[in-house]
Design a protein around this nucleic acid. Sequence first.
DNA 1: ATACATACC
DNA 2: TACTGGTATGTAT
Length: 870
Amino acid sequence: MENGASSTKQESFLSRMALNDNKAGMEGLDRDKINNIIMETSKGSRFYENELKKEQQVNQRIEKMLLQKAQITEQQLKTAQVQVDRMASSLEKSRDLSRLIVHVDMDAFYAAVEMRDCPELKDKPMAVGSMSMLSTSNYHARKYGVRAAMPGFIAKKLCPNLVIVPVNFDKYRAVSNEIREIFADYDPHFQPLSLDEAYLDFTDHVEQRQHWPESSRTHQYCSGRLATDEGQIETSQEAVTEEQDLSPVLFEDSLSSSPSLPGSRDVCDAGAKCEVFGTSVEEAVREMRFRIEQKTMLTASAGIAPNMMLAKVCSDKNKPNGQYRLPSTREAVTDFIQTLPVRKVSGIGKVSEKMLNALDITNCSHLGQQMALLSLLFSETSWHHFMGISLGLGSTHIPRHEERKSMSIERTFKEMNKTEEQMSLCRELCEELAADLKKEDLKGKTVTLKLKKVNFEVKTKAQTLPCAVATEEEIFAVAKDLLKTEIENESPQPLRLRLMGVRISAFVGSDDKKQMQKSIIGFLQLSKTDCSGNSPGVHQNPEKEHHSLQTRPVVTQMCQTPKEAPWRSQQRQLKQSQAAEGPQQSFFQRAHAKRLQLQVERVKAEEGGSGEDASTSTSTSISAEESLPSPVKENHPACSASDQSDDFFVSPVEASTSGCGGMKSETLTCPVCFRRVETTDLNIFNRHIDYCLSEGSRKPNQILDVDLESDQTESEFTDNLTEELVTEAEKPKTNKGSDRVFVEENHLQKVLLIKGDSETATSQQPRSCDGEGPVLICPVCQRTQTTEDLTVFNRHVDLCLNQEALHEMRGQILSSKNPPTASNSKIKGRDLVLRKTSKGKSKRRDSPSSPPSKKAKNIQPCNTIDRFFR
DNA sequence: ATACATACC
DNA sequence: TACTGGTATGTAT
């Protein structure tokens, strides 16, 4: 243990710079020789110096950790062990071996594409990239230690004959699309990780496959490709596994996808060679890889395992052009894990590995043995992560493509130290970023400037605006200020840059799709709303969005004690705001004056609440405005108003992600049907919810049908609403005398919105300790409700919401100028329906690929342990 | 919310 | 001569 520390000191400079031979095709290299060359080439460079510095920081972290370790008592360790054991057995119970998860990964993808298209490269060591940086290398080059993420000039030192081919992303993207078409045949919901990699859930496919005739499992050699591509077919021999002789000419007329007679193993119609695949997963995966190869002349490797974490490791096992299946038994899994080096696990990188190594942990069995110690030395998320790994657990459910969280652009260049140049580059970056944002119709509130100085030191400066921005001018207004600050910081020295980047994040929804999704998932998650009002059809009435956010139940799973619910700090901020400033009614429509007043105060609370920040934030947004063209400026007031109002309402989401301790619950309550599900297994629970939701989707939903199809009469619509209300009213739900804004239903917490009047809110804050109940104020009609019964109050709010929804709907239907669209009026309706339905009448009308996982995903993060399994 | 670090491809 | 670019997330303040 002690030499862990000293050895890290000795070899400190090695671990960052040294060859990373963790990659397939790099076994048994002469590491020392390679590392010598790397060091010789790098030494003295600014890059190297910076790496040394970072290395020292890591070493300090490790020292600190070891110091901490030295202070741990036997008793502490024992206690920790008990908890760790308890958690382990709990996790063990939830182990799900029923899924067949596959991770597919193309072999040396970019390099393979280039080799395919340029046969002369085949037997040469080659890499894709530039003298500055390589993206990937072929297996030949790997023998020299040449690998991805290595600068080309160093690679050339290692392998003087190396051929470096520039990247051609368009080509890789095209190939990627081809393989994704094949992926979709096995799992339409597959999750791409990059152009060349994906997770697939083969469970359903394999089940179906059992009943497939042999003809459906028969595939021809060299189909597909001929029709599409130019004359490069003759170079495919390398790729083919069993049959060596491909004569493409033969197949030109037999491209039909209907494979021939069952039973004919090798020869199908027209003499085309065929292969019949079996019904097992292995065979199915082999078939998929076969098809990829036939279609693209490129090979893929795959891993098959009961969860994602393991599948990923497995795909590396028989790379290239191979596959590995880890059987779905507990024993196989635990055996597999025992000898697995921690570094092989996705998520454990250079630094984590080094820290673990310092504790004498190199493979996953050590991880398990030292878990008590790890639980004392690492953050909760980290050691939970480790715990999952040590047990061989991982996500058994492939999460849907998540919405992007940020978008950025950055560029490296020769030293740049002139302010004007930096400014104009900054503007350029903003321009490009704005163009990219436009493509996806996104707007974000946080702008981050990234700077890398010539000594490789990286700085980031961020600023969050009260409302979302998207145009070049808006972004630049912020980025410019950040840059200016940095330049001033550095003066009188010039700011010497080698890289500049601009990122935008904290997106708010703006397009219809998003709105639709949000309204569905809004049931489970509070999300930020677009405040810009730039898409008139969507944001005619800012109120709409609020409604969808108002009575949002939250699902907290297996969380015994949330630390501090976020609503509490929000309440505090509200309090501050009320103490601080008066209303600014001039911004807002009269009809909603009161409500909006509160919103403005909230904005103020955020700006004024934290002293220093307030002034910077304000000044920047003002200077942003100064440089903005008038249409943009006009957006601002409306913007901050409707935007901040979202935050005004209780936001339960983070409450569910933080501080989830124990796992004692035996049942979970479904947020759709409100019935208890007898399981602690999140996957089972998620499937239940999926089922509930899709049950609902089969039954047409009234409100949505009106919204989206506009083919229902108003009275029908009203009737349906009433029906919904009755359903809800009949539901007995007693939760009396709660002094909180959320009502616990088992471990699911349903959040109620409670809002105070501006003058009285201070005394109306929900309290947790004193005996007084809160005063309930309807967020819709703004009237104080006399009841303390949350069920009654809930019903009142629902009624108000429905009335408003109806009112708006009516107006829109009658005026028929702006018939209600999916993106606006339906939002609250749907939320209401979701919230109220007792048997999952919610309608799911997006393609089957979006909603269920969204929902599932939103539930899962409630548990910190579970975060790992997603 | 901000800054910085780690990780992945 | 020359050590990326894009995204997500964790950690610390």
